[in-house]
Structure formats: structure tokens, C-alpha cells
Design a protein around this nucleic acid. Structure first.
Lengths: 206, 206
DNA sequence: GTTACATGTGTGACGATGCACATAAGGAGC
DNA sequence: GCTCCTTATGTGCATCGTCACACATGTAAC
């Protein structure tokens, strides 16, 4: 996943300048993608201009510094559509930009494809939960730091592990809810448009 | 936060080789730190040897490839203790190695310091939840991709935002539970050792 | 036999990320 | 006058993270 795609998706909705993108990713968008330093945004936008994905014009403000307002280009739109239709590969970190951006921007352009994305994510997370049950090491029989408290380490490690599993389980539940509501939406859309456009409802489940 | 510190903390408990570290971080330790590629582990271990934090001896196995078993050095122990007592700075991503490693390894060496770490984390997360409520942009009035569905985007964006807040809230709850159990532990330890060592119970809350 | 898988350790390359530093203008408070 | 905060944009550098590729051994399946 490239950060580029997040910016591309946002700029597809509305032209914005770097500072606005930064602010949005720090407040409303902080659960879509966290850990976004402003330097990264400006650097990325610069590269996207070079690659022709976006263009900008300088907006002079009264009483405020000038701002560069970026607008997505046709090339950018094509790149966005192409990304949305490229295969999704989950990573080990859940509830992260890798999935979130893919899901949001895919759902806008192609709801059926978004369901495939969810199913891919679900398969991966379920496997992850299973993998977390295997115990590969015993952290005993140590040569530890004198002051170290191994009993506490095990207790806290276990608590952390339990909370991690709980979180993934809740994530899986949420994904299932999202999937169900998307399926409903597609179904009602299809019914509504059936007589007009006759949109085919391909079953997206692999 | 440096990945180095995670390896240092684990090796303080028990000498291990790279493959074992990799396996552990992929199964039991996946909620302490995810996204760990083996190449990163071996590279990091190599650098730590250069810096004198760890040393290794080759363990010839019957029927299996040789393994390099790494053991923490005195320099490594000092570095670990120094890291544990250095100030903790939360990052925007919650439930991540940044906090997890710091918490686990601090709690082993200095439970009172671990409470300070939790409080720092709690302050930051509560502020984050508040910050998430501010609405900095309206993603309307667009010049969108023709096929784009802005209504769906808003709906899914909101759902994602809600789930994000719920997750942070649950994270805060868990932190409070951990804090309470640590406080209890310290209190009972202090009572138990009061007549023997007369350990002072400094109030860790800032 | 040979193909696949698990154990084990690495290198090279490249993009992503984070932190310090830099600049510039205006407004608020002391 | 001075400092601090907000808006606004950037560069430089080090580390992190990921992928491809590489090599070595033993075992289990076909």
C-alpha cells in the first residue's frame, strides 16, 4: 500500500492543500491512517506532481500564508481506479491504513469489489487468530537481569496477548457487519435499478 | 522507539537465536509487535553485535542448520535499563509496539515507572479521543470521479470513525485495568517487604 | 528421484516513516 | 518589544519496513 493512494482518494473527493490534508488526517481521519507527519505529506504531494497524478495552483490568502491547492488529474483518477481494482494483500497489522483506505475508496467506486476486499481481510485475520494460539517458546530457564521479574513478565505478556486477540475478534465482527450492510445496499440498489439499467449482480465471494 | 529495544528486552529473559525471535514475534508476540520481517531481525542483531549490546555463539545442531544463539551483554543490560528509565513519548498509533514493549519491559524492571508510562499513555489517548471529535473539513462540494459515491463514502467513513473511537475507548479501559492491578501488586509487595527492606512507595502519578 | 516444506541465516535495494531543523506571516498575551 | 501559537511549506538524514533473492540442510510426501 502506498500513502499516495490515500491522498489520491481524498483529492478525488475535493481539492485540498497540504495543511488541510494534514489536519484532516490528524483529527477526523486519524482512524483511517495515523502517524502521518506533515513532511511526508508535502514530500508525497511533490512526487505526485512530478508523476502527473495531481496539479496545484497557489491560493494567496489575506492575512495567512499562501497555500498550494492540489487537484487530482485524469492520470490520477486512472491510477486510483487501477489501484482499487488491483489485488488486496493484508498485512499483519489490523485496523490500519492498508485495509481502511482500500476499503473506503474501493467501496465508493465498486461496492462489489469492496466485499472481496473484506473477505480477503477476514480470511487473513481468522488465520492470524489461529496462529496466535501456537506457543513457540517458553520464556523460562533464564539468565536474566538480576532485578528482572519474570513472573510479572509472563502475567503481563499474557494479558497483552489476550487483549490483542479480543481486539482482532472485535475487528472481525465489525468487518462482518460492514460486509452485511454492503450486501444489503447492493441488493436494494440492484432491485431499484433492475428495470432501468439491469445491472448484473455478480457474486463477489471467491 | 527502536526495534533494538524489543530484542534487547527479550534476550534479557533468555538467550535466543534469530529464528526463534522471528517465530515468537509471529505467534505469541504478534500483539506485542507485528510486521516483523526476518531480514530485519538478522540485520538488527548484526548491528547490536557491532555495538556490543549482544554476543553470540554458534550452536551446531544435529540434523538441522547451525544457529547463532545471542546473549545479552552487560552493555546491553545497561542500555535496556537506560531505555526503560528514559521518558516515554506516545505516538498516534495505539496498541502498538511503541507502548507495548515499553510497558512490558519497564514493568519487569521498575513497576512504579510502568505506572508513569501508563499514565502518559492514558493522557495522550484521552486527548486523542477529544481531538477526533473536531471536524476540520467538509468533504462536500466536490469535483469527483464520475462514478464516485460520496454518500457511501461519508457513511463508511463515519462507521470507521465510530469503530476507531470505540477501539481507543476499549484501549483506555484496558490501560486502566492494567494500572489498577499494578498498583495493587506494588501495594502488596510493599506491605510484604515493609519490615525487611523498607521500600519507599513513591506516588508515580504525575 | 524430485518436489515441497521447515529450519536456519543472510544481502541488496528501495520506499516509507520520523525527527530535527528551517522559513515566513500574522495574532494573542505579557 | 518579546514570546508563543497557528497557519503554511519545505529539506536532510537516519532508521524502519518490505520484497526479492540467495544459500544450506534434513524430512516427508508423491
Amino acid at each position: 500500500m502506498k500513502f499516495e493512494n490515500v491522498l489520491l482518494g481524498l483529492l478525488a473527493m475535493k481539492p485540498l492543500h497540504g495543511y488541510e490534508l494534514m489536519k484532516w488526517l490528524d483529527t477526523e481521519g486519524q482512524f483511517l491512517r495515523s502517524n502521518t507527519h506533515h513532511s511526508q505529506i508535502y514530500r508525497e504531494l511533490g512526487r505526485m506532481v512530478t508523476n502527473g497524478l495531481v496539479e496545484f495552483h497557489v491560493d494567496p490568502r489575506e492575512g495567512r500564508p499562501d497555500a498550494k491547492v492540489y487537484r487530482i488529474t485524469d492520470v490520477g483518477r486512472e491510477a486510483l481506479v487501477e489501484w482499487v481494482h488491483s489485488p488486496y494483500q493484508p498485512t499483519s497489522r489490523f485496523q490500519d491504513a492498508d485495509f481502511n483506505a482500500r476499503f473506503i475508496f474501493t467501496a465508493q467506486l465498486d461496492p462489489a469489489a469492496a466485499i472481496v476486499v473484506i473477505d480477503t481481510e477476514l480470511d487473513y485475520r481468522r488465520a492470524q487468530v489461529l496462529r496466535s494460539r501456537t506457543r513457540s517458546l517458553t520464556m523460562a530457564d533464564p539468565d536474566p537481569i538480576p532485578e528482572i521479574d519474570l513472573a510479572r513478565a509472563r502475567r503481563l505478556g499474557l494479558a497483552m496477548h489476550e487483549f490483542g486477540k479480543e481486539s482482532v475478534d472485535r475487528w472481525i465482527e465489525w468487518l462482518e457487519e460492514m460486509r452485511a450492510s454492503l450486501v444489503d445496499e447492493i441488493a436494494s440498489d440492484t432491485v431499484a435499478e433492475a428495470s432501468v439499467t439491469a445491472t448484473p449482480t455478480e457474486e463477489a465471494r471467491s
